[in-house]
């Protein structure tokens, strides 16, 4: 294991984060605050409580997940796309470093950043809503696993993308709809039965459901299923990332 290399990539990526701290942290914090003001306070005040939880409190886990997903994907995809685009990837390719180490460095940094961000968002939410966390350990477990899984997913997109359009295509066309339809703002039990079934094909449902369970002890799908699906998706992303790197896909001619 080339620990120095992992640390080098990790610190390099984290340094990029600190350099762009305002965009990295402030952006998502501001947009989340806006969601709270609009959905939580303005609209939420006219909504009935869902399963005994006020609407403003109900949307906190979903909103946090929304930012977590978007930021994990955009950070990780950008992190690997940029060196590809600028050509500096040559150095990583010529270094005595395994594919796993490359992933650990880039994805580890993107996930760390997301975890910090998720925490900051939860703290921001506290300013607006007085929520409580029923299962702090599981809350953190879901936060960390989601950050890792979607950073990996972003990494894959960054590997696959051969232009800036593609880099934004997947987040825009797939991830955003899936998060919005994944129960960020509603319980899927509010949907007609047919759509409840369709929704179960959306992986984000499991993330949000599990995450919400860790807050309020109630969930759309059982927490065991949520955790299993999260791990399945993580394993899937790991497999794809490994395969892409091994074949040198879009990295090596």
């Amino acid at each position: 294991m080339n620990g120095h290399a992992i640390r080098a990539i990790y610190s390099f990526e984290m340094a990029r984060t600190w350099r762009t701290l305002s965009q990295s942290i402030a952006g998502p914090v501001i947009s989340t605050s806006l969601y709270f003001v609009v959905f939580g306070s303005a609209i939420g005040s006219r909504m009935t409580a869902i399963g005994g939880v006020s609407y403003a409190a109900f949307i906190i886990p979903g909103l946090t997940m929304l930012s977590l997903l978007n930021e994990s994907i955009s950070n990780a995809s950008f992190g690997i796309y940029m060196p590809k685009f600028s050509g500096t990837i040559y150095e990583v390719l010529s270094a005595p470093i395994s594919y796993l180490e490359i992933v650990l460095g880039y994805v580890g940094a993107a996930a760390s950043k997301s975890i910090v961000l998720g925490t900051v968002i939860l703290l921001t939410a506290r300013v607006f809503v007085d929520y409580h966390i029923a299962h702090p350990f599981w809350m953190f477990a879901f936060l960390v696993l989601t950050a890792i899984t979607f950073s990996l997913f972003g990494f894959i997109i960054g590997l696959w993308a051969d232009g800036f359009q593609k880099l934004q295509l997947v987040p825009m066309l797939i991830v955003t709809p899936l998060t919005f339809l994944g129960g960020s703002f509603y319980s899927i039990k509010m949907l007609p039965p047919f759509w409840q079934h369709v929704t179960l094909f959306n992986p984000v449902v499991y993330l949000i459901s599990g995450f919400r369970w860790s807050f309020y002890g109630a969930s759309d799908v059982s927490v065991g299923v949520s955790m299993t699906m999260t791990l399945v998706f993580l394993a899937l992303c790991l497999g794809v990332a490994r395969w892409l790197l091994k074949s040198g896909y879009h990295l090596k001619a």
């Binding site: 120095h4 080098a8 390099f12 340094a15 270094a95 005595p96």
Partner: peptide, 17 residues
């Protein structure tokens, strides 16, 4: 682009273990 000369050279050393 945005890294300093020192940082980028240290990065290379680390990358090579």
């Amino acid at each position: 682009m945005f890294e300093t000369v020192w940082d980028t050279v240290c990065f290379s050393r680390g990358l090579f273990g």
